[in-house]
Every structure is written in structure tokens, then in C-alpha cells.
């Protein structure tokens, strides 16, 4: 349980890789069994498309681009929201629910006995689920471009290369944030409800419903003090090929991960201590 970073790294690394491979392969097989549900899950992320409808109608109809303060063309707007849709698909996190279910069903105790930090299990499950989603997301994106041929453009290889780590880091931030809430399950059986509260700033500040460029400057400044704009908006802008401060955004994401990772580890240790003290 109480493993420190090992002195002999090589065998430890080999062991880690083997565990990772086995976990990913089994979780992927498991997720494939649920592909129908996962397809529906993918479909339930339609919010960016709805918002695209409102934004593009507002752009052509009412105030015009200048009035909305967007500085985006119709095609760019469409690509941004498609990017937001894709970023959301691959950063969806449900560790709170899985963790709560496992602890209620009593599956947690055996996990705690294994020489593997149980959160890794959930990480593997999430990655496997994303792999299952991938074909559905591709189909939805293709349909989107068929419907909006004017917006069609593939991100440049360089941008794609940047977008991938950006999405993974966004996923890491989201996963760590939600894990913190999940760990609260050790203290309160209704910790899951807190996830509803976390979701609200995420929904409005991440760029899922509006590009952050549309925000008034004051709100935008506040938003960038939180991790939320990096969780959707930044990867979406990368994918859409929009202008975006790349280096500073990556630095901010790394900073958030550096802050959340030890915090989660500490909370986990305290939680397990409490769990064992309570006798399960």
C-alpha cells in the first residue's frame, strides 16, 4: 500500500507497463460490451452543436460579429464548436459514480488489498471508454462536415500534435478534480452530489457553451484563473486552428496538474486511513 518511489526503477517500470497493458486491454474488452450505451453517451454531448446553432444565428442575424465581440467567422465558429464537442468527448470523467458504486457494492476493499493504487484502475477504464467512443466521434464529425461543408478543414499536423497532449492534459485535470470529490466518499456517502456543483462552473467557464472570446474582459480574466477554460476551450481552439497562446496555456495546465496531483494523493491517503479506521 505504502509504496514510495522505488530505488530500482527499471524492474518497477517494466511491471508498471505490464499492468497498464493488461488493464487497458481488459477494460477495452469490457467497454466494447457496452458500445451501444457508449454511443448514446457520445450523442448526449450534443450541447456544443445546439450552442453553435444559437451563436451562428446570432452572428448572421442580430448584432453581427463585432457586436458579439467574437472576432470569428461562421466557419471558424463551426470548427470551434466541433472542436469543443471532440474535446468534451475525450475528457468526460465519471470516476465519482464508478467509485461510489464500487464502494457501495463492497468492491473497494479487495482493490485496496492489491499492490496497485485503485485510481489507476479507473484511469484505465476511462481511457478504454474513450477508445470505444472514437469511432462514434469520427462518424459524428464526418456527418457534421457533410452538413456544414463550408466549415470543412482538417487541423494541420502540427496543431493535431499539440491538440492531442492538450486533450490528455485536460482529461488529467478533470480526472484529478473529480477524483478529489470521489475521495470524499470516504467521509460522506453523498459526496457525489458535490459533483453537480463542480459541473456548473465547468459548464459555463470551460468554453462548452460559448467561446471565451465572447466573455466580457473581466469575466474572462477570472475564468482564466480557474482550470476550466483549459479543459475544453484550449483544446477546441487548437483543433479549430484558431489563434491561441500555446506555450502559456500548456504551462498553466502543467501547473494545475502539479497542484492537483499531490493534493489528490494526500486526500487519498487520508481517505484510506479513515476507511481502515472505520473498518470498512
Amino acid at each position: 500500500m505504502n509504496r514510495r518511489w522505488p530505488r530500482a526503477l527499471a524492474p518497477e517500470l517494466a511491471r508498471g507497463l505490464r499492468i497498464a497493458r493488461v488493464l487497458l486491454v481488459t477494460q477495452y474488452a469490457y467497454m466494447l460490451e457496452y458500445r451501444a450505451e457508449i454511443a448514446l453517451w457520445a450523442l448526449s454531448g450534443v450541447l456544443p452543436f445546439i450552442m453553435l446553432g444559437v451563436w451562428s444565428a446570432a452572428l448572421t442575424g442580430g448584432g453581427g460579429a463585432a457586436g458579439l465581440g467574437l472576432g470569428l467567422s461562421q466557419a471558424e465558429l463551426a470548427r470551434y464548436f466541433l472542436g469543443a464537442f471532440i474535446a468534451r468527448q475525450f475528457t468526460v470523467v465519471w470516476v465519482v459514480w464508478a467509485f461510489e458504486e464500487d464502494s457501495v457494492a463492497g468492491r473497494l476493499s479487495p482493490y485496496l488489498l492489491q499492490p496497485l493504487q485503485p485510481l489507476w484502475r479507473y484511469v484505465a477504464a476511462h481511457l478504454a471508454e474513450q477508445a470505444t467512443r472514437l469511432p462514434f466521434v469520427v462518424v459524428i464529425a464526418a456527418l457534421f462536415f457533410l452538413q456544414q461543408p463550408a466549415a470543412f478543414a482538417l487541423p494541420s499536423p502540427a496543431r493535431l500534435l499539440l491538440a492531442l497532449p492538450a486533450i490528455w492534459m485536460a482529461f488529467a485535470i478533470h480526472f484529478l478534480l473529480q477524483s478529489l470529490i470521489a475521495i470524499l466518499c470516504f467521509w460522506s456517502e453523498r459526496a457525489q452530489a458535490l459533483e453537480r456543483l463542480l459541473f456548473i462552473p465547468y459548464l459555463f467557464l470551460s468554453g462548452l457553451v460559448a467561446p471565451l472570446a465572447a466573455f466580457p474582459p473581466g469575466v474572462r480574466q477570472v475564468a482564466f484563473l480557474t482550470p476550466f477554460p483549459y479543459m475544453i476551450g484550449f483544446p477546441a481552439q487548437l483543433l479549430a486552428g484558431l489563434e491561441v497562446p500555446i506555450a502559456s496555456s500548456f504551462a498553466a495546465m502543467a501547473g494545475w496538474i502539479a497542484l492537483l496531483l499531490p493534493l489528490t494523493a494526500l486526500a487519498w491517503r487520508a481517505g484510506v486511513r479513515r476507511y481502515t479506521a472505520m473498518g470498512g
Binding site: L68, G69, F204, A214
Partner: peptide
């Protein structure tokens, strides 16, 4: 979000 459509400028 609604207010965004009513021109902050």
C-alpha cells in the same frame, strides 16, 4: 450566457 448575446459592448 444569455447576456453574451445582448452585446456587452
Amino acid at each position: 450566457v444569455l447576456s453574451l448575446f445582448y452585446g456587452n459592448s
